[in-house]
Computed example of a mutant assay.
Amino acid sequence: MSIISLIANASIVVQLVMLMLLAASVLSWVVIVQRSRLLSASRDQLLDFEERFWSGVDLNALYRECQQNPAPSAIENVFIAGMKEFGKMRQQNTSDPDAVMAGVQRAMRISISRESENLDTHLPFLATVGSTSPYIGLFGTVWGIMHSFQGLAAVKQATIATVAPGISEALVATAMGLLAAIPAVIFYNRFASRVDRMVTGMYTFADEFSSLLYRQAHKMNQSVAKKDEAGAS
């Protein structure tokens, strides 16, 4: 009794369950490969941008460079949102640095929320596969065993040789459910942890960037006040 023969001789319902689990497993591995590449690239982009940011580069030059990028990274979008809001608040002649930074922090929080949603894309699918596949496989097993026992009603004497094939066919569904669920659960937990670390890194950058912009806004406010005093005198 090979696995292929057990699947081929299984009932239609059990075969449909196996097909569903096979499709879920294949889709899970597609998501796993795609998310793994995306998160690795996003992590590298985060580290590279932070290195450029703290290298002493001019913020306006870095802002123009990020805007010209056709596909900005997650951290670049956060930086662009902060710089854009900072420029708008300064154009409105807002003299209060606290009001300026409140708007900048709000804009960066919104950007981080959007990037977090993008990073979390398809992760709920992995969670769903990991949580439901064992039960779907168990349903196929229960149905297959029930179908096997119904076949025994027509047999005068039940032996192990008579019962074993039907039960083996049914247990294949449980095995396939576990094979679909285990990788999905492992990689979901891994990806969720990596997304949390990236989101924490973006919030940390936003706080550091806010402190830098606050000092800059305070200096600009002081320079404007000095000019007004000089003009009045």
Rank of each mutant, 00 (worst) to 15 (best):
L178C: 02
E115W: 05
A181M: 05
A170T: 04
T200S: 05
G87I: 08
R114V: 01
F209I: 07
A161M: 07
V129R: 00
R215W: 07
G82Y: 06
M146N: 05
A8P: 00
H147M: 14
F86V: 02
E208L: 10
D48W: 09
V172D: 07
L46T: 15
Q92P: 05
Q157A: 02
M83F: 12
V30N: 08
M101H: 09
D120T: 06
L62V: 07
S133W: 04
A173R: 09
Q216W: 10
T141Y: 07
E208M: 04
Q45M: 13
R106F: 13
P165W: 06
G137E: 01
H218E: 13
P134S: 02
R197M: 06
M89G: 11
M20R: 00
M176I: 07
F187W: 05
L179T: 08
A99V: 14
W29E: 05
V199A: 03
K227A: 11
M108C: 10
L138D: 10
I7R: 02
F125T: 11
E117G: 02
M20S: 06
I182M: 01
R197P: 00
G231D: 15
M83G: 06
A158N: 00
I4V: 13
M176C: 10
M20Q: 00
D207F: 05
M146H: 05
A154F: 14
Q105T: 12
G87A: 13
A102W: 07
Y214C: 11
I7A: 11
V185C: 00
L47M: 15
P134G: 01
Y135S: 01
F53H: 10
K84R: 15
H122T: 09
L16W: 12
Q222Y: 13
M20N: 01
D196E: 08
F49N: 14
L22E: 08
S148Y: 13
N9P: 00
A184V: 03
E169S: 05
I110F: 02
P124H: 01
A181F: 03
T132N: 13
V224R: 15
D58F: 09
D228Q: 10
Q150L: 08
L19G: 14
Q92M: 08
S233F: 13
W29L: 04
A184R: 01
V104W: 03
Q45A: 15
N9I: 03
I110R: 03
N118E: 08
H122F: 10
S133G: 05
S95K: 11
E50T: 11
L59F: 15
G130D: 00
R52V: 12
V78W: 10
Q216I: 07
